[in-house]
Write a protein that binds this DNA or RNA. Structure first.
Length: 288
DNA sequence: CCCCAGTCCTGCGGGC
DNA sequence: TGCCCGCAGGACTGGG
């Protein structure tokens, strides 16, 4: 679930670790299968311990902790991972602890209920190979309208599916794709190569607006309550959702049509059939 | 190039 | 009430 707004919130929440030294790294005693980390724990610890943290960045849906050795620690939360300074939601699913200088019990923690997430310590060359331009498209918050259109407008894919492709655009996931398309008034089944310039303009506007608003609200904590910021506090953007997980409820924009749920690429998509018509309206005679 | 199904994993809720 | 099953969707992989 963590997408760009949630991961950006995690990043901002741990900025205070810049300047701290890493004292130790240990895998938490997790009853279930331990989290995947690379390289293996002993090597990871040896290369991280003693290093100073120089920056905290984000690449797509991952948090990147930069070290003075030029290595980076990359936290990839996937579905249920959290990057925390506060105590984790449960002891049970605490996966990795990075002990920091600056006070007793000062730790950066990776918690992950489902255990699909992972943590990597990578060299600059490895970083480029895994997260460089060949692997990830431009960040969704930094892409221009022209670049967005340029990367997608020849594709025959449906726009919702294309927005989830991290090689085309980095950061958008299933939840925000539906929200962005509703804000833009574009039907999720529209093929990319049928969108006209005005629709790309609306899409780009909606992309920036929705993601920035979601960051302002510190992300979306859904009904399962999993997502938390670095202080283990819930986000509030779920209260602003236009369509996500609102099937059958009335659209907040037109106040008439019920929100529909469809499936695209084995994933739920939510839309308002009235605010997101399948076909563009025919231009009225005498205009255009 | 693109699509699809399967993989990892846990917790939850529906159905019986 | 308890059990089973399907679903949630991040990223990735293999086959068509």
């Amino acid at each position: 679930m963590p997408e760009l707004p949630e991961v950006e919130t995690m990043r901002r929440g741990i900025l205070a670790i810049v300047g701290s030294r890493i004292l130790d790294v240990r895998r938490a005693p997790c009853a279930k299968r331990p989290i995947l980390i690379t390289p293996r724990p002993a090597v990871f610890r040896r290369r991280a311990a003693g290093r100073t943290i120089t920056a905290v960045d984000r690449v797509g849906k991952r948090v990147v902790v930069r070290l003075d050795s030029n290595d980076s620690i990359v936290f990839e939360p996937r579905m249920t991972g959290l990057v925390l300074l506060a105590d984790p939601p449960t002891r049970e699913h605490l996966r990795l602890v990075v002990r920091l200088s600056g006070g007793p019990n000062r730790e950066l923690r990776f918690w992950d209920r489902r255990g699909l997430g992972l943590v990597r310590l990578v060299t600059p060359v490895q970083f480029e190979g895994m997260y460089g331009d060949a692997k990830l498209g431009p960040d969704a918050l930094r892409v221009s309208c022209d670049e967005l259109r340029g990367r997608l407008h020849k594709s025959r894919r449906e726009i919702k599916v294309a927005l989830l492709d991290q090689r085309a655009l980095a950061g958008v996931g299933n939840l925000y794709a539906s929200e962005i398309l509703h804000t833009a008034g574009v039907h999720p089944r529209r093929r990319c190569d049928t969108l006209v310039r005005d629709e790309w303009r609306r899409l780009h506007e909606a992309l920036v607006e929705v993601l920035e608003q979601a960051i302002r609200h510190e992300g979306s904590t859904l009904a399962d309550g999993t997502y938390r910021n670095a202080l283990n506090e819930q986000g509030t953007y779920q209260n602003q959702h236009r369509v996500y997980d609102r099937a059958g409820q009335t659209c907040r924009q037109c106040r008439r049509a019920p929100i529909e749920r469809i499936v695209q690429a084995q994933r739920s998509t939510f839309l308002c059939p009235r605010c997101q018509p399948r076909r563009r309206r025919a231009k009225s005679p005498g205009h255009g």
